[in-house]
Design a binder for these strands. Structure first.
Lengths: 427, 427
DNA sequence: ACGGGGAGGTCAAAGGTCAC
DNA sequence: AGTGACCTTTGACCTCCCCG
């Protein structure tokens, strides 16, 4: 017999008293308010039972407020309300599925991981082209995207293709500091990079305790200063042997410093990455959108879902959402610099820019590639504010006032759609 | 009230926090993550209680292992008790104080509000110059700023001057839809614009119920499509009478659509604005910073304070923080477009660009203005990635490969400091 | 030395749970 | 819907150890 609410009592009366006080129950006695209340008959008359509780010394002040539930099954992140596939889980799925596409096509190049090469400008272009195709596949995994007008789909794809390239590159490079470089140029990953985990773990175990590890550690010191392209090329921060193109290196350094490093610091997870990518993608300010408000709603839903997802990490969630979103301005900035570099490389004939790259990244008609729509108004795509920065081609800038006195309202609502949807299998 | 785990706390929360951290309890809020947690209701939502513990400054690192007293070095998580003036209140104060400076100097132009003129390019430059000075004043109201190395102060001021101009312009224009335009070109404000509130309210009352209001309403329809410059000039969205410069109008439209409109939709308040400004300002990626990590900490503190401030709103906090931060990429984008326009206007001699504007906005040595430091390496400020986008001057781009094959490591750690601190009274 | 601040721990008595 | 045997959480009140 313990003490409850100030009186010696059984567990039953404790519960009865609490429920009664909490819900302010008012009972009535069917007899003469003097019913016997003992172990057997305690449930015969509530009025008399409660009266006996008080008489025994129970204090209603001792009953506290209702507390939080102890066993609260957490509602899953799966979309209960909106079936537009914008839940963090759906977005993560789209990310994983679209990556799988390339993993399969890359199966043949499995062995190549052993001899990664430093990227030259055309390796970069090559990787870019590949990644752009993945981007389209990715988008198609998002129902809310496929339900948009075709024009808007194209607009979104074009608007931030560059950001997505860099973002993907950054993600690939995130866990590179958890990587070891063997003497024969093999790479051992601590975490998931492709399907090499099991193998890596094995090798790690095999070498455990050996002095070999020392040399390995030395060789791996600077691997966190490396970017991994989609086609298994590498961009190094420290320009070893001067084998890197300086312009590629510049972009690479900024990606490492301004994107990879902060994302590593907060240890972004796949779900967060998927959301961040989608937030960049659904940009209500993208040029030529017919339903910007609709896009804004989609992005809003995503950023709210991400906010909720992060708030569920109670111990290290604070500031996390902000740090993620604050990666976007530098991402945009680096993207522009990259596009600028590609423009230059193209201009000087150093790089081969094919039509997909031209369309999605450089944002408009090319002055050199053969196109179906020669009616494209201007090589500067006049009137399209530089979401993709339009480097004025020097000729035009010098000999024409066009870029300065360009006529924004004269530009078509929908920017030249040289990008034929069929070509990138949008449907 | 003692200190536990780094925060003033009661015994109950101490125990709660320790138990939660030790067992890594994950709670779920049954409501909207904004439950009141006070002496009475502290047990009603464990999720919100734990969150409040963290918000109050409790550090999970301060919770030791079970039955662990052996290796005890207690300090370390002693955070720099943020007396650095980064609280939302301090930032709001800096904002209000710096605005006051100009309000006073503008006292003479009080009457001018009656005949606002459409801005021409040199009105814009004029306003810009004025606002740049205010920006410096603003920064000086933030202790954490003044405690920085002088070089870093200059770096921060230069890095996002353009964003701050547009941000200020957007703020000024926020409540313009709450404004009425009288027939004699007077403006009546519903809310605070300068000190005109009382007067406006008076006029509003005076006209109440009159048929005059109809005409007034008609005239005011498009006032939400107007930007207000610091020098009382106006940029209109709809190019009435074709009196606007088309290039100014382009920037203006984007500011209205991509900044003012979203900020209006969430009804940003002064505190949030002040924080947003500071977040833009303390950019750890700014060129030439000697202590980027320090700046990152400052920004982190600010964005956390803002997150907390917003989460204190009981009903409409969800998604708000994200919407605010998501204004930053377009802000950056528009800024670059603006700078591009100014570069062009300068290039063609249309605009007068003085040295302050050149230094803070265009980011480096001028090719025309007379400067004290002719040693500035390159008109392209080679090697400085375009946080401020460096439009390649056509001559250089055409006749020199420099911008493509520029040597980033050859640039000085600290960009040319043509901006003499004394000149803008940094001290 | 020695008092106090802030870690850790304890456990009576609150609370919630969920077949019945 | 209410009951009550059974389990969890709370927080007032200790101890212990560094540090000034």
């Amino acid at each position: 017999m313990d003490k409850y609410y100030g009186a010696s009592s059984c567990d039953g009366c404790k519960g009865f008293f609490r429920r009664s006080v909490r819900k302010n129950h008012l009972y009535t006695c069917r007899f003469s308010r003097n019913c016997v209340v003992d172990k057997d008959k305690r449930n015969q008359c509530r009025y008399c039972r409660l009266r006996k509780c008080f008489k025994a010394g129970m204090k209603k002040e001792a009953v506290q407020n209702e507390r939080d539930r102890i066993n609260c099954r957490r509602p899953s992140y799966e979309e209960p309300a909106q079936a537009n596939g914008l839940s963090v889980v759906s977005l993560l799925n789209a990310e994983l599925l679209s990556r799988k596409v390339i993993d399969e096509t890359n199966n043949a190049t499995d062995a190549e991981i052993n001899n990664r090469k430093l990227a030259k400008i055309n390796d970069v272009c090559d990787s870019i082209k590949q990644q752009l195709l993945i981007l389209v596949e990715w988008a198609k995994y998002i129902p809310a995207f496929t339900e948009l007008h075709l024009d808007d789909q194209v607009a979104l794809l074009r608007a931030h293709a560059g950001e997505h390239l860099l973002l993907g590159c950054a993600r690939r490079s995130l866990h590179l500091s958890d990587v070891l470089l063997l003497g024969n140029n093999c790479i051992i990953a601590k975490h998931n990079i492709g399907e090499y985990t099991a193998r890596a773990a094995g090798v790690l175990r095999a070498h455990a305790g050996e002095h070999l590890l020392l040399g390995c550690a030395r060789r791996s010191l600077h691997l966190s200063d490396v970017l991994l392209l989609g086609n298994n090329c590498i961009i190094a921060k420290h320009n070893i042997d001067g084998r890197m193109d300086i312009d590629i290196s510049m972009i690479g350094i900024r990606v490492m410093d301004e994107i990879v490093k902060p994302l590593r610091e907060i240890d972004i997870d796949d779900t967060e990455f998927a959301c961040l990518k989608a937030i960049v993608f659904f940009d209500p300010n993208a040029k030529g959108l017919s339903q910007p408000q609709k896009i804004k709603q989609l992005r809003y839903q995503i950023q709210i879902n991400l906010e909720d997802y992060i708030s569920d990490r109670q111990y290290d969630g604070r500031g996390r959402f902000g740090e993620l979103l604050l990666c976007l301005p530098p991402l945009q900035s680096i993207t522009w610099q990259m596009i600028e570099q590609i423009q230059f490389a193209k201009l000087f004939g150093v790089a081969h820019v094919d039509s997909l790259l031209q369309e999605m990244l450089l944002g408009g008609a090319s002055t050199e590639a053969s196109l179906e729509e020669p009616a494209a108004p201007s090589p500067l795509s006049a009137g399209s504010p530089p979401l993709v920065p339009q480097l004025p081609l020097p000729e035009a800038a010098v000999f024409d006032v066009a870029p300065f006195k360009q006529e924004p309202n004269a530009s078509p609502e929908h920017p030249s759609r040289v990008l034929k949807p069929a070509e990138i299998t949008l449907l």
